[in-house]
């Protein structure tokens, strides 16, 4: 009876592994990465996953094994064993090394994504983005390539960017915190009132995708939805010109 009870602890590792196999097969995985650094971020994720999977399985199986092997109905008394310097030093050092390596390894990717000094030099300033309750406002530099001039093009919840070139936005918020999240492109950056934060990425595929607010910004947070259209640079220019003309016509 005791034997059976102890084996029930296998449910945790077996169940978790089962989920891990079931999930990707049923679409519970992240969306395909569509930005140049998206693939690096995903790669790092898989790296952690390899390490965590091994650590998880080893510890869970040891736990179950101990509960099974050292049941109270096995003959004899427990041993008073309570120290083993070698073992203690080994696993402290081993986890420290693996984890430190992981922490150091990822710095390169983080730098490429977030350090303004390392943004691609040719990144094209596409728009100034302002979050407000509960919409995204975009201001594109018009033909003169400069923001806050008369030929700026303005849209609400409609972001267009050219594919294949590094693009840059300037992120702002006018009332509370928001967060600019493009799940498919692995872009996430909080928008903070009073601060202007540059964000860059390079889209690798054309299409229309969700722009999501990822920071609680009030009762309507859930519906603060925008749309990003990634298209060829020519189409992007054409869209910009067309939108400018529409804007002029309604002025």
């Amino acid at each position: 009876m005791n034997k059976l009870w102890s084996l029930l602890f296998l449910a945790v590792p077996v169940g978790s592994v089962g989920l891990f196999i079931w999930a990707p097969a049923n679409g519970h995985w992240w969306p395909k990465p569509l930005s140049s650094y998206g693939a690096d971020i995903d790669y790092f994720y898989y790296l952690i996953t390899v390490i965590t999977t091994i650590m998880f399985l080893v510890t869970e199986l040891l736990l179950t094994w101990a509960v099974f092997k050292y049941r109270s109905d096995t003959p004899g008394r427990a041993s008073h064993w309570h120290d083993n310097k070698k073992l203690e030093i080994t696993w402290t050092a081993a986890t420290a090394l693996i984890l430190l390596w992981l922490g150091v390894y990822q710095i390169g990717i983080w730098k490429d994504v977030k350090f303004p000094g390392r943004f691609p030099k040719d990144a094209q300033l596409v728009a100034e983005v302002t979050g407000r309750q509960f919409e995204w406002r975009f201001r594109y530099p018009g033909a003169d390539g400069k923001l806050h001039t008369v030929d700026d093009v303005q849209t609400v919840n409609e972001l267009h960017v050219p594919v294949g070139v590094p693009v840059k936005i300037l992120l702002k918020a006018q009332d509370v915190l928001h967060s600019f999240f493009l799940p498919n492109f692995r872009v996430k950056q909080d928008a903070v009132p009073g601060v202007e934060i540059p964000v860059w990425w390079k889209s690798t595929e054309e299409g229309v995708f969700d722009l999501v607010c990822a920071e609680l910004c009030g009762w309507g947070h859930y519906k603060m939805k925008g749309r990003i259209t990634v298209e060829s640079p020519e189409k992007f220019q054409a869209w910009l010109t067309k939108t400018w003309q529409e804007q002029e016509a309604t002025r």
């Binding site: 971020i41 790092f44 994720y45 952690i48 390490i51 992981l102 990822q106 799940p183 692995r186 996430k188």
Partner: peptide, 13 residues
């Protein structure tokens, strides 16, 4: 570990 390293927290935050 996924959340404590900046690179992957970027997505999971």
């Amino acid at each position: 570990l996924y959340l404590g390293t900046a690179t992957s927290d970027l997505y999971f935050h």
